[in-house]
Design a protein around this nucleic acid. Structure first.
Lengths: 247, 247
DNA sequence: CGCTAGCTTGACATTCTTCAACCGGAGTGG
DNA sequence: CCACTCCGGTTGAAGAATGTCAAGCTAGCG
């Protein structure tokens, strides 16, 4: 299953690519030093499980590089992704030492981990951390609610279009520009993982991708590399109102 | 549309029924006094809209009595509920002055409202409030994720059974006992609102309710009053593993 | 007395899943 | 080097679950 071992650099907080978006975003120099003292890096290869639901977790973490997925599995194997964690997103719940969900790396991933206990202390003593965490949690809750609309009410085609636009948009956010016109990007998920995200089967995902391709909404350079000739046309397929609503 | 005007009492924090579960749960006497100074009550009748998505909201609030729903609507009218707010749940997002979702009263509702600006100040100066809010937000996020599994992967029958067990469980929590054996409760939602919660049509909701009734899993005293002769049997219909998983 | 809101039921249409076959590229072992 | 296999992906045919449209029921109310 593992291919090459992608070696991510381990850097000082000052050099960190997610310095201004993660839990630490609002920290001053002295607070960063405190975090620096309790942090360590871990890497995972695409496909690896980071933790299983129910496992003890002695750390919380920020995603530095790559993409991780939170998912739930029913006894009979039905699986639903409930979180998609991109760089700067937070893993783990303070004051809970067991994972609530399976966490898997869908690409090669590097985490910046904080030892649980000292991190929890910091949450109490350092408002810049706890306030940032509250804000991030509220953002995730909004994202979860958007996702609920998708799962409950959108058609398969709308689900796919919405997913693609989310990925395109998030990619663009990292580069601080909003997508329009021609866009291209790499899918960080297999068809099966997309199906788990969207509450579909992988066959339906495949069929709808083909259908969008046939209709010229997207083009595939590679199974994973997507080209969107006209982003507005893709947005139109999502079922959302003209200008992104909440965002 | 409105029937009788249900008059809820307006009480001191010390007498408040949600005193130990709401955002104020961890406040000391002096902090309660601060809250008391910025709070006021509002009541709504079943069916009334509390705010529309996009409206200015100059307050945040706790649900004191009754049940409110958060929902999103697509242009063509498709509607998905994304939050079900029971007594002690929190409405509104600090540092955001416009509502992100429609909020409607599904029963008669009383809110304890806090003026936005002073509440935001308190969040900064009063850790017992901000920490409680973080905890509540994390709980809501967990609930949203459970809900995503329901929307994405459960069958109509499982959705209904899950919904009923959630209502039964939440009702029981208010009375601090866990349901088992024989349980009875009132549905706080119309069939249509249930459909919006579950990502179904109201016809499917109705059919599945009939089916569960036919199979003896539930009995209906009234369209709204549910009797569950054997709670474990209901749980078995939810598709979740034996002992409630996360909870 | 008739209306309306909330709900139930039936018949039929549609969407999506299921099961199965197949494709192509990447690694693997002879 | 070649055959083999595995993985991720695509496509087809058939079936099941749910949605749609329509009719009808009941309780409460004007």
């Amino acid at each position: 299953m593992p291919h090459r071992q992608h070696a991510f650099p381990q850097v000082d907080c000052a050099q960190c690519p997610i310095r201004h978006r993660a839990v630490c975003a609002r920290c001053e120099t002295d607070e960063l030093e405190q975090l620096e003292a309790i942090k360590y890096y871990r890497s995972y290869e695409a496909g690896q499980t980071i933790v299983w639901a129910g496992d003890k977790m002695d750390f919380v973490a920020s995603v530095v590089h790559g993409v991780a997925a939170l998912s739930q599995t029913m006894e009979d194997g039905r699986r639903q992704m409930v979180g998609l964690l991109l760089p700067s997103d937070f893993i783990g719940r303070p004051n809970r030492d067991r994972a609530s969900y399976d966490v898997t790396a869908t690409t090669d991933v590097q985490l910046c981990c904080f030892r649980r206990m000292p991190f929890q202390e910091m949450l109490i003593t350092t408002p810049s951390v706890s306030q940032r965490l509250l804000e991030m949690t509220l953002d995730e809750l909004d994202a979860a609610r958007e996702w609920m609309l998708l799962l409950g009410r959108k058609t398969a085609r709308e689900k796919i279009a919405s997913f693609l636009s989310i990925i395109a948009r998030r990619n663009a956010t990292l580069q601080a520009k909003r997508p329009s016109g021609h866009v291209a990007f790499e899918l960080p998920l297999t068809r099966e993982a997309m199906a788990d995200y969207l509450g579909l089967t992988l066959e339906t995902v495949s069929r709808q991708m083909s259908s969008l391709k046939k209709d010229g909404v997207i083009a595939l350079e590679d199974k994973r590399r997507i080209i969107v000739p006209d982003f507005d046309a893709l947005m139109h397929e999502t079922g959302d109102d003209a200008d992104g609503g909440v965002y």
